[in-house]
């Protein structure tokens, strides 16, 4: 039993080292993309990964990187399965992840996902990650990746990405 416990701890350590290719300061754990790590009946390690957005091209890459990270630590055999249920939400992003995003220059998601309805305008008062002003303006609902929107700060005039709340 202790051996299994130890093995699973090592798995979570390995996952903490796998980062998002577009936002390298965030690990898959910070993003809340890992839904579970288990040993199945055949003693294989099964990692359940949930994609952020259906079309996010990073999902396939992350599957490979997780497999590689486990293999380099001798945590084998491992399989990474994609788990769509429940659907990923920014509510699963860790607090430390949100802080890292902020420091990296991306405004973290504000509010809880259930508040983000169909016709609700993107929340006002998104804080600028550079000068922390709340006088900011939405430029575009879509930005460099599926998970972000583009804003501009009215005070320091810098454009910045906002990690959408979904």
């Amino acid at each position: 039993m202790n051996l299994i416990r130890h093995c699973l701890d090592e798995c979570w350590d390995a996952l903490a080292q796998v980062s998002d290719p577009e936002i390298p300061v965030l690990s898959v754990l910070d993003l809340g993309m890992i839904r579970g790590v288990e040993l199945n009946a055949q003693d294989e390690i099964v990692v359940r990964l949930t994609p952020t957005y259906s079309g996010c091209p990073a999902t396939d890459l992350l599957k490979d990187e997780i497999t590689a990270a486990f293999q380099s630590k001798g945590l084998t055999p491992v399989q990474v399965v994609v788990d769509l249920s429940e659907a990923w939400t920014t509510d699963w992003m860790s607090e430390s992840g949100k802080q890292k995003l902020q420091q990296y220059g991306i405004a973290p998601p504000q509010g809880q996902s259930h508040q983000c309805g169909t016709h609700v305008a993107l929340s006002d008062g998104i804080r600028c990650p550079h000068c922390h002003s709340q006088q900011t303006k939405l430029l575009s609902e879509f930005s460099s990746t599926a998970c972000k929107a583009l804003y501009k700060c009215q005070d320091c005039l810098e454009p910045f990405d906002y990690f959408k709340c979904i």
Partner: peptide, 20 residues
Amino acid sequence: LELDIALANIGLDLLGQART
């Protein structure tokens, strides 16, 4: 440019959904 990115992003979501 913003619309270009928006339309491509929506297309990408739809492509991901189609794959599923």
